[in-house]
Every structure is written in C-alpha cells, then in structure tokens.
Design a protein around this nucleic acid. Structure first.
Lengths: 231, 231
DNA sequence: CGATGAATTGACCGATGTCAAGTGGCGTGG
DNA sequence: CCACGCCACTTGACATCGGTCAATTCATCG
C-alpha cells in the first residue's frame, strides 16, 4: 500500500528528478481520501487549496455552463495528478472533478507544495511543463472544435480515449471505463442523439462495436483516418 | 526609451514582486527586435527558445490546422508577454505570432530566464500563475465554443476585444487595431459571411457600427446581453 | 419482474455553411 | 491627381449538417 503510493509519487511528472529521500518525505505529508462513485472530489468554484494524485479509479473533469449544460474536458487515470494551481494563492478551481467508480486519492495541501517548490526549483519547472503540455493539448482541441465536423471530432475523441484508456482484447481495443453516449456528446459539443447515430453507422461499417456504456474499437486505423483525413 | 522598456519589465506579471535592481538587471539582458507588418515573430513548430514582451504594436496569435485553415487565438497588446514555455527545454511553440502593424519586441533567451527562475522562485510562481490564468481563460472559451451559437460567440469575442483593445470615442468604443470580418470568423469558428450577416443585423439594431476593418461598439450593454443571455 | 436510465431511430426544421454575384473603399502606378 | 484594380465586404439562393422532440427498445439493478 505504502509502496504503491510511493510509486505514484515517484512516477508523477511533477516529482520527476527528485531524490528518493525527498519522494518519501513528500509522501509522508499526503493524506488519503476515498470518494464514492458519482461523488465530487472538487466542485467548480471551490478555492484551490489542494493538490491531488489519483491512486485508484477514474475521474471525470467537467465544466458547468451558466445555462446548466456541461462540458466534459477529460478523464483522469490512476497515476495522473490534478490541481497544480493549488500552489498559487487566491485561485479557484475552474472545473469539477467527479468520481466515476470508487476512487482513492492522495492529497497535499497547496501551501505545503508551495514551500517544497521554493526549496526545490525542479518541482516548479515540472509543474510549469505539466501546465504547458496541458495548455497545448487544450489549444489543439480548441482548434479542432472550431474547424471540424462532428463525425471527425468524435473520431478524435475516441482515438484519444483509446490512447488513454485502451485495453487490448482478443476482439479489439476496449475502453476500460464506462462512458455513455452522453459523455461522448459532452466531450465534443454535440447531442447524445448524434453520437448514437454516428456510432451506429460505424458499427455497420465494422469500425467499432457500440456496447452498453462501452465502446470496442475494431479497426483503429480506420478510426484514425476518420479523425485526420489529411493523412 | 530605456525607461519605457524598464516600465514594461516592471509591470509585466512575470516579473512582479522583484526588486527594482533585479528589474534593471533583467532588462540589461534583453535584446530589442523589430518586426514588419505581416511578418512572423514566431512560426508554429519552431523550437521554443525565447521569451518575449511586446513593446509596441499588435500581434495576432494564430494556429494553422493541417488542412490549411487557421484559428485566431488572441491578440497581443503592448505590454503583454509571450513564450513563457521557453524556460523549458525541448518544447516547440504551438502557434505562430504575426505582427499586424510595425512591432517592437523585447526578447530574452529562454535559458537565461530559466537561470533567473532558479535563483528567484517568485518568477516561477508568477509564470505558473500566468499560465494558469491563460489556461482557465482558454477552458472557458472552449466550453463556450462547444455549447453556444455563432451569434453569441461573436458577441463574446467582441466583448473581450473591447476589454482588451477598446478605446473610448465620442460615439462609442472603438477597437484600436484593424480586424477584418475574416479575423472575427477565425476567432469563433465560423465563416466571414456569417460574421458579416450578424454585424449587419446588429448595425440595423443600432448596437454596433461595422466599418472598414474596424468595429465601433455603440451599446456595449446590449452586446453583453447578447454574449451572456443568462444575466 | 418491474422500474429506471441508456440507447436507438424517425420526422422535422432551423442555423449556418457554400457559392456566386455585386458593391465599395483604398492604394498604387501612371 | 486620377483611374484602375484589388481586396474587404455585402447580400441572396440554396443545401445540409446536426439539433430537437417523440416513440420505442434494451440493459441493468433492485
């Protein structure tokens, strides 16, 4: 258990390049938190005071719009961190984090992390790099949303999900986390109806198999071609 | 001249909270660069090796898509910084920076800034905060693009532009930087035709006045209501 | 086995993209 | 300084993608 958590700290990009000793020191300051399925780890608008690494389960990062609809930004895997901005004072979380299954999370006080960052510049660089990478990813998706059709956007979302959550099976690649049609719709800014229609069509063509809250990818290459016709 | 540049360094968020002495030291390591109208300060894909503060003029940050169209992410004002990621090694600029008018830019080597950051943690925090704020802004726009209609998105884009570039005149607020219908279209993911139509309609209603490469906002409140009907 | 929530499918229509034609302001070269 | 040409812009006609809503079927769970 302890060793498992230590591994998470050691392998997280934020703590790369630090001494084994420091890793242990960091872990000793962590709390462990459990979250029920559908429970909220964080609510949009909360003051950002804690930094998290997900130890177990899956989490959805969602953004509520003023008119009540929502946007699904991304999923969090075991091992992924979240809430780096807690090292800065006075900010709010811009999104909510909702557990999909039963989750276990390592938690640090933002202030503590800030102190560590002052003593170990490497952590600051790591944090900056993590944010930069995320920013670039978001910019790219922004561009895709502005310039591409729904079908293409859905293909792109699925390709990304396969990379993040894909699990090889004898039949193809399965997403190992329950994802409804509505989730997919909220990721690409469309309706569950349109998602359903497109998946049905792809199923006819033999590219994917649309299951109950699951998607099985049969021909990933075809999907990638749909996602990026230029190639 | 020197004093003007010093002011830019002093007032830039990245260098907040540092000693006057350090500000001067930083400025002494800056180069000055001039860019012709339509010239590129940075091209998407270049290795990120330099950090910039715009001293004079306006710059468009654009992103080229694989299929040749482009997305306009934002404009840079005199005083605004750009390219913080240059302190990190191995990254590429994800976007291009194109001068609109004749521009003057302060430039620092990324490595130099990295050294400064190691000695002065405050710079790292400032950089992190700047990226976080930008990230939040981008996330919000992402959400808006996914959930809102073209008319609303255009209103939002204009409201933002007014805040950034607005100049009060006797008739209303004018954007002090030439912006074509196509620019607006590329900001919100539509076509120049649709932008033209919507502006014409608003002009009939007396909300704005659509000029040659300019927009004059007559009734900002109405525009804000269009941008955010919830209020 | 019934209740509940997820998914499918069809009919309809409206917002917005596409394309073509025309207008008008601005700059350049004679 | 004028005239030409270019480029930004406008407007109309038309097509279509994809949103909306309703009816139905299907899994899963108690």
């Amino acid at each position: 258990m302890y060793n498992q958590h230590l591994l998470l700290v050691r392998q997280n990009p934020i703590f790369h390049g630090l001494s084994a000793q420091l890793h242990e020191h960091i872990l000793q300051h962590a709390h462990v938190l459990k979250v029920e399925p559908n429970g909220f780890l964080i609510r949009q608008g909360d003051p950002a005071t804690a930094f998290y690494i997900l130890a177990q389960g899956h989490i959805r990062l969602i953004q509520l719009t003023p008119d009540g609809s929502q946007v699904l930004l991304r999923f969090l895997n075991a091992g992924q961190e979240f809430g780096v901005i807690a090292v800065l004072s006075g900010l709010e979380y811009p999104i909510s984090a909702q557990a999909i299954e039963h989750c276990e999370v390592l938690v640090w006080e933002g202030e503590l992390l800030a102190q560590l960052m002052e003593q170990h510049p490497r952590i600051g660089f790591n944090a900056l790099r993590a944010m930069a990478v995320q920013n670039q990813e978001l910019q790219r998706r922004y561009q895709e949303m502005l310039t591409e059709r729904v079908e293409q956007r859905l293909a792109q979302a699925l390709v990304r999900l396969v990379r993040q959550l894909g699990q090889a099976t004898t039949e193809g690649t399965l997403l190992d986390c329950p994802i409804s049609r509505e989730d997919l719709a909220e990721m690409i800014g469309t309706t569950l109806f349109t998602v359903s229609r497109i998946l049905s069509q792809w199923e006819h063509e033999g590219v994917v198999e649309a299951k109950w809250k699951k998607v099985l990818i049969l021909r990933q290459q075809d999907l990638e071609r749909l996602a990026d016709p230029a190639e």
